[in-house]
Amino acid sequence: MEKKLMNEIFHDYVFDFYRKMQINQIHLIYEGEVTHQITKAFTALTEDNMAKESEPNNLQMKVFHIIVESLQNISKHAQNIEGLDDTKGIGTFLIAKSTTDYFIIAGNLVHNEDIRSMVELIDTINILDKDGLKRLHKEQMKLGKISERGGAGLGFIDIARKSGKALGYEFKPITHNVSFFILTTQIPRNNNE
């Protein structure tokens, strides 16, 4: 009896999940450790799908680029959080497609003490136009150093430049010192810039 009930719960969950994926046009969703193998698998999968759908080359490259940067952000910056099970490199990743845009969404845990500097950086990026972003990128290329985590401090700037849209973000509080950071990148499918 108990087994039947459990099965029903799982089956309902899977069916519900399937329907929500369809409704929201979600192409891929992942929760777990973002390893380099995962990055390679997701980029290869997306490349194949986009090629099948005959998406223009430059759109394919933009989406590819933003997937790589978003996933490498998670693998480099998702930190171990004290009091929680191993959370280093753990994140949630989603690719959705509408008739007009691709959406790349990445989520991971961050310490609340890091939120302020992240908000400052993203808000700075979001008010810059194309030339402003180009200048900021150049500055960071000149002054930036590869950090201990292996990043160049260019990820957000680059994602914004490639997408041509403001970065969407939110911090969902979890505990008094930990939040879940969500970054949404919108990539127009018809970019005639």
């Binding site: 490259m61 590819f64 680029h65 790589v68 940067e69 490498q72 290329m141 930036g144 150093k145 590869i146 292996g150 990043g151 160049a152 260019l154 990820g155 680059d158």
Partner: peptide, 12 residues
């Protein structure tokens, strides 16, 4: 034909 941001810095 493609490089990530970390590579772009090292290329520089």
């Amino acid at each position: 034909n493609y490089f990530n941001t970390a590579s772009s810095k090292l290329l520089l």
